[in-house]
Design a protein around this nucleic acid. Structure first.
Lengths: 107, 107
DNA sequence: ATTATACGACACCATTTAGTGTCATGTCAA
DNA sequence: TTGACATGACACTAAATGGTGTCGTATAAT
């Protein structure tokens, strides 16, 4: 039995600007076929299809066949992991309000 | 005049698990030299140094020379961009509370 | 002064990535 | 039924990535 064990790291999936643009297009349009998505890029259909396959392996995209076309839709859930990860670093961000406060206290 | 125009995409910088671990180590320790950082990995010093260079190009890390060692520290600020980007997709997350509510209404 | 340490810069290599074009298949239209 | 269309699968290629070892140099220790 062939299992779908091709998990893929969500961080690697969003590292590519083409893939981030794909996610954005799908966020705007609910569901889009490959042909339509391809029109927004300067690369060929096959390349876009591969990027979508990578997004699919990261579960960021869900596809379903409708007639002769494959329609893609966004699944943003895996981005929760990124959100959690990056949130940890918020406490290290330069807090400009705190800096300003400190400057005033130094008066 | 040679400019430091080697900007690097923060998304690509955090795509690698080694680099994410480096960020974590620096979050825990304030400032660490390359030698010390290397002990936490199974790869050689040169490889770790390269990863740090990539983090530096993404401004996620700041280095300064102290004697014969180079000490690295975290700069989490560029992660704000990631935070903003991912926040946009929050509205697409499956809201389990809403689903539960809908299920109850279907009763 | 000599030796050991920490590092950056290189040259090098294997693997992965991101793109291409082509072909076979399934579906819709005439 | 014939033909156009949409796609996946595949073979191929150039470039980027992630690692190695070596060498030169600056600093620290003896």
């Amino acid at each position: 039995m062939k299992e779908n064990n091709h998990e893929r790291d969500v961080y690697a999936a969003i590292a590519d600007p083409t893939r981030r643009k794909l996610l954005q297009l799908l966020a705007e349009a609910e569901e889009l076929p490959l042909k339509e998505l391809t029109t927004h890029f300067s690369m060929g259909r096959t390349a876009v299809s591969k990027h979508l396959a990578i997004l699919k392996e990261a579960r960021l995209v869900i596809d379903r066949k409708v007639g002769r076309e494959t329609r893609y839709r966004l699944n943003a859930d895996p981005l929760k992991e990124v959100k959690d990860w990056v949130s940890f670093y918020e406490k290290f961000w330069v807090d400009r309000v705190a800096i300003l406060k400190q400057l005033l206290e130094e008066e």
